[in-house]
């Protein structure tokens, strides 16, 4: 075990005046308290800004996506205005796998950064595609809103209409492995 100190919920972390509230902590009265159990990290204090205290969860840092979180999911339904998908994992490489999928939506105007008016949902996603997207809002009562309007976001894995595996061949197209059939997608930059 390393020498980092472990905080427990309800543990006092010091007065608010000399510490900044970070993730996994809360303020009660004029003191800062831990709200989850995990290793305590303190950022360097400068003369103007007090140190930032935060607690990380020992397994993954997030339980639910926040605004700005990159997520991985599968397209479940499409219509001309939006594509529904279920978030399966958090992080750009799926570091935190969710126990249950979360519903989310990519609206037509959030699919691509440029030429928004020319984008169509059927020309970007198909049911079953694995997509990488970033959460842009907590959304409505059901679904999170997500966007693929960046180079590294979009479809990362796709299966053709015939049921064959496909590989990306350009920013806009996937091609069947060993075949010549091409299908239009919003392709994520391959890394």
């Amino acid at each position: 075990m390393s020498s980092t100190s472990i905080a427990l919920p309800g543990q006092s972390l010091g007065p608010v005046s000399s510490n900044n509230v970070g993730a996994g902590t809360h303020i009660h009265g004029d003191h800062l308290f831990a709200s989850i159990a995990g290793p305590l990290t303190t950022t360097k204090a400068s003369s103007k800004v007090p140190p930032n205290l935060s607690i990380a969860r020992p397994t993954g840092t997030l339980l639910l996506p926040e605004v700005g979180t990159t997520v991985l999911g599968r397209i479940t339904r499409t219509n001309p205005r939006q594509a529904n998908f279920s978030i399966l994992a958090l992080g750009s490489t799926g570091d935190v796998v969710l126990a249950e999928p979360l519903p989310a939506i990519i609206r037509q105007q959030d699919i691509r950064l440029t030429e928004i008016d020319k984008v169509t949902v059927p020309g970007s996603f198909r049911i079953g595609d694995m997509v990488r997207a970033v959460v842009i809002s907590f959304g409505d009562e059901r679904a999170y809103f997500a966007s693929t309007a960046r180079d590294e976001l979009g479809v990362v894995m796709a299966v053709s209409e015939g049921g064959n595996r496909m590989v990306p061949v350009s920013w806009r197209e996937f091609e069947e492995v060993g075949g010549t059939r091409r299908e239009a997608r919003k392709v994520a930059k391959v890394v």
Partner: peptide, 11 residues
């Protein structure tokens, strides 16, 4: 609850 990582004000 703490094991699940849900934020609590105290134990």
């Amino acid at each position: 609850l703490v094991d699940a990582g849900i934020d609590c004000v105290d134990l």
